[in-house]
Simulated assay, not measured.
Amino acid sequence: MAQEQNLLINGPAGQLEARWQAANQTRLGVLMCHPHPLFHGTMDNKVVTTVTRTLAGRGLPTLRFNFRGVGTSEGVHDHGRGEQDDVLAVLNYARTELGWERIILAGFSFGAGMACLSACRAPEHLAALVLLAPAVHHFDAPNQLPYEFETFVYMGDADEVVPFEEVQDWAGRVVPTPHFSVFRTGSHFFHGRLTDLKASLLDDLAPLLNPLQP
């Protein structure tokens, strides 16, 4: 497996710090968004790296980045407005510079919110939307998702940060209905459940992953 490489991506508020792991194929890649910048969220978050390493292990190229104002990314935190533009800029980079044909867009907590809203703005090149503990109480969660791809929601029912009932309610109302995986006694950071999370990801995304295998 290739080592991650450091990248600087031109974003709307300046350069964004990123890490890219190459793969032999570029038909499908993974872009992962990190949790809230004002609560120490970065692209080095354990859930973020668990997702990227898991899918890199299946031969996918991966890309994670720091939102504006985080790490060495330029700009200042924009309370979820400019951060959507950051996601779209990195999506565009993955397509035009890395050559990815389709993208699994994923996010954790605040990052799940930014991924969700960005997916609604630019659904045409997405293969799937993966939302881990989406902070629906902190962003204007849409009533409708794009039909171009399937959406997967992962949530611990003992989440101490994002209210489980609010995510459950949203997942039951939004159209089309997402796949909703509940981790019993699971916390916000999936403590002790990361192995289960990895297994669920690989199982849910198998229809996308299996055609890539030789």
Score class of each variant (00 low, 15 high):
64 R>D: 02
4 E>K: 14
203 D>P: 00
109 S>Q: 11
16 L>E: 07
204 D>V: 05
62 T>L: 00
51 V>G: 01
3 Q>V: 05
42 T>S: 08
189 F>L: 14
198 K>P: 04
120 C>Y: 03
194 L>I: 07
26 T>E: 02
94 A>N: 07
200 S>A: 15
174 V>Q: 04
206 A>T: 11
78 D>C: 00
85 D>Q: 14
107 G>A: 04
133 A>M: 11
42 T>H: 03
43 M>R: 06
135 A>P: 00
73 S>K: 06
179 H>A: 13
121 R>P: 01
200 S>M: 10
187 S>Q: 13
72 T>N: 15
196 D>H: 07
125 H>A: 14
54 T>Q: 09
18 A>W: 03
194 L>T: 12
162 V>M: 08
166 E>Y: 05
200 S>I: 03
66 N>A: 04
65 F>D: 00
7 L>E: 15
136 V>H: 08
151 T>L: 07
83 E>N: 15
185 T>F: 02
130 V>M: 02
94 A>C: 15
90 V>L: 01
123 P>F: 04
60 L>M: 08
126 L>R: 14
14 G>T: 06
161 V>I: 15
37 P>L: 00
102 R>S: 13
119 A>E: 08
176 P>D: 12
10 N>R: 12
214 P>Q: 06
139 F>P: 04
101 E>G: 01
118 S>P: 03
